[in-house]
């Protein structure tokens, strides 16, 4: 089991907690008003319980700061981006089934 659950990240700690992290990271860009974001949140939590030891699971509320979402060209939420060594491995847009997200996560395992 992972120790910390899904980490909340913002513009201020994105660099230190995601880009410079010693592990790959999955970041869920979301907002409180977004229905499909609510739908995938529990799925991401479940994946964190399974893979949280080897991957950092984080979420970025796009309401809290525009810089990081703009930097990664985010135009739709939910967008889930997988990072490794500070670079983007892949990204997924929209609410997708758990099996689909799990395949996605395995790209950095």
């Amino acid at each position: 089991m992972a120790e910390q659950g899904v980490l909340d990240v913002t513009d201020s700690n994105f660099e230190s907690d995601i880009i410079k992290a010693d592990k790959p990271a999955l970041v869920d860009f979301w907002a409180p008003w977004c229905g499909p974001c609510k739908a995938i949140a529990p799925v991401i939590k479940e994946l964190e319980e399974t893979y949280g030891d080897s991957i950092i699971f984080a979420r970025f509320n796009v309401d809290t700061g525009p810089n990081t979402p703009a930097q990664y060209g985010i135009r739709a939420i939910p967008t889930v981006i997988l990072f490794q060594n500070g670079t983007v491995v892949d990204q997924l847009v929209g609410a997708v089934p758990k099996s689909h997200l799990e395949e996605f996560v395995k790209k950095v395992l």
Binding site: A31, W33, P36, I74, R75, G94
Partner: peptide, 9 residues
């Protein structure tokens, strides 16, 4: 596919 989600962008 979602105005409510993405209008802000």
């Amino acid at each position: 596919y979602c105005v409510d989600c993405d209008a802000n962008f």
